[in-house]
Design a protein around this nucleic acid. Sequence first.
DNA 1: CTTGGCAGTCTTGTATACAAGTCTGCGAGC
DNA 2: GCTCGCAGACTTGTATACAAGACTGCCAAG
Lengths: 251, 251
Amino acid sequence: MNPSTANIEEAILSAILAGRIPPGTRLGEQKLADLFGVSRTRVREAMMRLETRGIVQVSARRGWFVVEPSADEAREAFQTRRVIETGLLQTVREVPPAVLASLKEHVAIERQAIETGDVSSRACLLGDFHIHLADALGNRLLTEIVRDLTARTTLISMLYQPTEKAEESSHDHEDIVAAMAAGDLAGAARLMDEHIGKVEAGLDLSAKPDPLASLRELLVPSTFTDVAPSMPHPHGAAAPHAPHHPSTKED
Amino acid sequence: MNPSTANIEEAILSAILAGRIPPGTRLGEQKLADLFGVSRTRVREAMMRLETRGIVQVSARRGWFVVEPSADEAREAFQTRRVIETGLLQTVREVPPAVLASLKEHVAIERQAIETGDVSSRACLLGDFHIHLADALGNRLLTEIVRDLTARTTLISMLYQPTEKAEESSHDHEDIVAAMAAGDLAGAARLMDEHIGKVEAGLDLSAKPDPLASLRELLVPSTFTDVAPSMPHPHGAAAPHAPHHPSTKED
DNA sequence: CTTGGCAGTCTTGTATACAAGTCTGCGAGC
DNA sequence: GCTCGCAGACTTGTATACAAGACTGCCAAG
């Protein structure tokens, strides 16, 4: 069957979110076209859609790359999520029982995935909680926005997360739902704020995602001197304006 | 000069937001391509980007149309704006003086445009207030989201607004800034909520947008004959009837 | 051994050709 | 007069061809 543009877009996005395609990966148009059995045109369409959603990025005449958000961009993503998700909880007046039940069920599924050690799906599940919340309390438009933002922060977690704290996140989710069940929306909003803050704080935003960035770090007068375990000396004459390197060349 | 894809996207968007291209207008690829002096490829790219931003919509093999949000979609857009903008005000702890000054200046410009009767720019200015706010208190990512949402609601206002209440909106903005200046962020958030609610309540969401708008558009001869040289005429390819909305394209 | 340059290869950017569907308008039939 | 059907024009959807820039690797000069 001939996959449509939306199919391709979805396939690539889910592969990225599932961790099968790490940040920084180059996505060649021709290879994807061969893979999906279509021409480059459709692949290009899908990539451009993903670009407007902030998932991939094009480097002129070099290729498409899965985004590697900088530390600043990471902070922006988390701030934006804090604004929207606390805003949602504070805007809502009351939570329908059906919504509460659905959220509780989701948290139960999360815990189950964590207990059974299903690493591949738990990251998706933890993100899905927030998407479910937006869907249940908000609307379709808001859900789309939250979905894309969650995708962003998921990507960020892949880049910067030194240790996964799935259990803690799931526990946070449980607390948020409990506050909602008690009718304490303001409290739920505060818990959500703290939750997103914890996730952000759990990252090592000073860690550089690519070795070139640490090179740049060496060239800049810096007070930070505890990294670079096996870094050869660049002898001073390194070209400073090469943005990053294509880390993976094989398929 | 050869306009880039981003140029085309921006030109079309600003023409729509300025009211030169009303909702429901068909945008033919070839005509736009001739107009901009490029091939259909670039126009298509721009249109697809605008589609992911919720500005235009493609009807298979019929053409691209400026979106005509339904009443439900209108409510979603306003709810989403309420969530995000009140959330922003409640998340921020303090407002830097420079931000306050900038916002006050913006409100002053609004009032001036209203007093001088500058109808064409005041709608943009009223929307820009919210974008400025997101930019000043939030970050770039949040600003992009608010910008697209504001574009949506601007389009909605064109469809449903029976009477413009520019003065009242500007006054609301003034009150919001005053509350911020007093350090009352919660109050500012409440005012923002009421403000957006007022704008939404001022619309007649029961009015059917389609036949009315396009008919009126057809009956009104072009009173303005000289606009920007590279600007497409709004009624160049007016569709006699508007397409029905594919209400849910969920998968 | 290092360094600078140059050609080849590979990738995206853009335009164009063709396929497939939709609407319009006219004419025949009733 | 009215309706149905069909052909033509017109529009988007998709693939492909070609142009232009970027990177790689080799080779010669110092």
